[in-house]
Computed example of a mutant assay.
Amino acid sequence: MLKVLILSLLIISCLAQAESIDNNENKQLTMCVSHYPPYQVISSNQNPMGENIAVTRYFFEKLGFTIRFTENNTFWRCLAMLEAGKVDLMSGLLDAPERRKFAHLFAYGSLNEKLFYVNNRKLKNISTFSDLKGLKVAVLRDIKQFKQFDNAPDDYLEKVYVSDLDAAIRVLVAGKVDVFISTDFLYLDKIKNINDEVHRIEEVVVKLDHASLLFTGLSKKSKVAHLEPKFAELSKAMYESGEFKKIINEFKLQYPEYYR
């Protein structure tokens, strides 16, 4: 009961500050999106959806703002647009000092599992980060994975950076890497329908020893950046109370097809 009262008071306070913005100013915020199921699902026949989108829309609409979405962009373009202030929001970010230079980060969830793609049956038993020792691992350039991997010493494993998911699959099929790390739960099924060589690749779902927090980023050049203290206070309370987790669980129940 006390948590509910605290959340209510925080919302009232945030709404009051939001009203301090010029009444003639549009209350619409722009969120940059990338197709990356189940976190962000972008298709031509429906509005953007996904875990990240559900919690971001829920949070800001609760505060009186509406959200419009960009067309499907690459992750890197979204980061650049956030830094330049061309969009207000981006979600699904892991923490990094360079990102805090241009964005305020609000935690809403945690990443507790990753997909490891392997092209060697001997590697099917990978279950923890330590199993990657000595292997060549493909990852998308400039995308954070999880703390242990991102901070691994150079001599622990060899990181092979690729530009996109297609390139990662190509080097894996060719045997140039041992493992590819991703979070797209539907990607392999899609490409198996068009590429016979990919049928040798198998997925291994790995539970992470130490979960990494997931954040929504608010550009420091956004028209609402000055509301960051109140946004941060409210998002912290909602994360700790499990309110964000409830929204994510509701999305999972409504769209089980994105989780197999």
Rank of each mutant, 00 (worst) to 15 (best):
V4L: 10
V173T: 14
E98G: 02
Y36W: 12
V162H: 03
T74A: 02
E51P: 13
F65V: 08
A84R: 11
I6N: 07
Y187P: 04
S13G: 13
T56F: 03
V179I: 09
K252Y: 12
L214P: 02
Y161M: 05
S241P: 03
G50K: 02
N195H: 10
I21D: 10
I126V: 09
A232I: 11
Y187N: 02
N119M: 15
T30R: 12
S219K: 08
S127A: 04
L105Y: 01
L135M: 15
L186R: 06
Y108S: 08
N52S: 06
N151Y: 12
Q145I: 00
F244C: 12
R200W: 07
P48H: 06
L253Y: 14
G50Q: 07
L172P: 06
S8W: 06
D166I: 10
F102D: 04
V179L: 05
Y36T: 05
G217D: 08
L188R: 01
A84S: 14
V171R: 13
V177H: 00
F180M: 09
N23F: 15
L188D: 10
V179C: 04
L227A: 09
E158P: 05
D178W: 01
I248Y: 02
A84L: 10
L172A: 00
S182F: 03
K3N: 13
A16R: 15
Y39R: 06
S222N: 09
I6W: 10
L93R: 07
Q148A: 06
I169A: 09
I247Q: 06
L82K: 05
L5R: 15
N193E: 15
K144C: 00
L29V: 06
V171N: 06
I248D: 01
Q254F: 07
G109C: 02
S219E: 07
S13C: 13
I181G: 03
S212H: 00
I126F: 05
F60K: 04
S222A: 14
R100W: 01
V118Y: 00
I12Q: 12
K3G: 10
V179S: 03
D142L: 04
L165N: 08
P97V: 01
